[in-house]
Design a protein around this nucleic acid. Sequence first.
DNA 1: GAGATATATCAGCTGCGACTGACACACTCT
DNA 2: AGAGTGTGTCAGTCGCAGCTGATATATCTC
Lengths: 113, 113
Amino acid sequence: MSLAEPASLPDLRLELAPPDVEAPLAVAVLLADRNRATILAILREGPHCVCELAAALDERSNNVSNHLARLRDAGLVRAARPAADTRRVYYERDEAACTAALAQLNNLLEPIR
Amino acid sequence: MSLAEPASLPDLRLELAPPDVEAPLAVAVLLADRNRATILAILREGPHCVCELAAALDERSNNVSNHLARLRDAGLVRAARPAADTRRVYYERDEAACTAALAQLNNLLEPIR
DNA sequence: GAGATATATCAGCTGCGACTGACACACTCT
DNA sequence: AGAGTGTGTCAGTCGCAGCTGATATATCTC
């Protein structure tokens, strides 16, 4: 294995430059909240409006609205008002953006080669 | 698209059961810290000891040690003491565990089909 | 041996993000 | 028109995760 013991230990390498992790970090921060993660999971099945999500999460709708705004700003979900009742706002996942987000996490977690 | 407007809007569905997101959430929480994300990125290249990581991150070693303990508890990294200097602790990624963690995030982000 | 080095643990502090509550606005229904 | 519904914004509060500083242990170097 890669931790096999050499006869002599290499010198300390204190000059390592930290790699840029901004993009995967931003995705992880978005997913690292139970309500946002659950919202993304629920929306896999199809679009839902804010009050449906709030009921499923047992959270106030303004709180859910805030989380949806975060996800929308990141591009992971889209909003649309149905013509039949323009009070409601239905949210659906942007699958392309979700796939792109997953690719960022891939960069962090997959082996180097 | 899936948000095409039907003639009539479906009734509100307020009985939705929230799906279980514990596993992907735990992974996301681990990755949602800049230091931990950077540690995982640095360790892609190979094993490093705590003080090397602390230097690269410009953080105190006790802080880095704490983050490494979190990653180790989650199984994402392993620790080993080299016989040549047992003061140091070299950490390396557990690639199988990282791949498994990525699969959890996959469950959350990939399209339903 | 003395002093320096490397890691880890722990109590305490602090900043940030999630939640609350109040409010605003637009629309639907009767 | 008036009441009710659905969503969004914002200031304020609060809990918690990350950082600090002190301390402990063990090892290496001289």
